[in-house]
């Protein structure tokens, strides 16, 4: 057998390696002893505020956080998306559109922004007799953008705001 034939055979064998459809049993994912939420994708870690409840991720959500019952309803959604997801201005204006607010222009974006630790924070309240409020913390880590959004009735969101901002300030970014 010439070297060329031998190399060709090796290439075919290499191409076939471990590339078949396979069915097997897997244990249900068991949370590690140390991690408070192993089901989350890798990314920033947060400390759930005292008295709040964390629900596992569903659909696009990595997690849902529920503040203690207050006057009205509010909740925090945690969503991770790769890339720039259309840019920060587009996201901010999408949130403002959901609240019934007019869009911002690029130069106005910095004025609408505050910081809590590593997070850039936007806080908008909609118009009307029963206004909705949205407080969003945006954190970027290794090409993925994490959105922490506290949304709900304005009164409930205001009650949850201090603990939410404290949680954003305490976000631990992955050290890898």
């Amino acid at each position: 057998m010439t070297p060329a034939w031998a190399l060709g055979l090796l290439a075919v064998l290499a191409a076939c390696r471990q590339d078949e459809i396979a069915t097997h049993r897997e244990p249900k994912e068991v949370p590690p002893a140390s991690a408070e939420a192993a089901t989350r994708p890798a990314g920033p870690r947060w400390r759930v505020p005292r008295g709040w409840k964390e629900l596992p991720g569903t659909g696009m959500r990595a997690a849902t956080l529920l503040p203690p019952p207050a006057a009205g309803k509010a909740e925090v959604s945690v969503i991770a998306l790769p890339g720039d997801v259309g840019g920060e201005l587009a996201n901010v204006n999408r949130w403002r559109g959901q609240l019934g607010l007019p869009p911002l222009a690029e130069p106005e974006l910095a004025g609408a922004r505050s910081r809590a630790g590593a997070a850039r924070v936007y806080d908008f309240t909609g118009p009307g007799a029963a206004p909705q409020r949205l407080i969003a913390g945006v954190v970027e880590e290794r090409g993925t953008i994490w959105f922490f959004k506290l949304a709900g009735e304005a009164g409930a969101a205001a009650a949850a705001r201090p603990a939410f901002r404290e949680m954003l300030r305490g976000l631990r970014l992955d050290a890898r």
Binding site: D19, E20, I21, A22, T23, H24, R25, E26, P27, K28
Partner: peptide, 28 residues
């Protein structure tokens, strides 16, 4: 494709990306 009906374990059928990239119907 995971059959998560059994509370004790999952039955997982894994289709590698080499097959996914070829496109078309995948009959496992």
């Amino acid at each position: 494709a995971t059959d998560a009906s059994d509370p004790r374990f999952d039955v997982v059928t894994a289709i590698p990306d080499s097959r996914l990239k070829r496109g078309g119907e995948i009959d496992a």
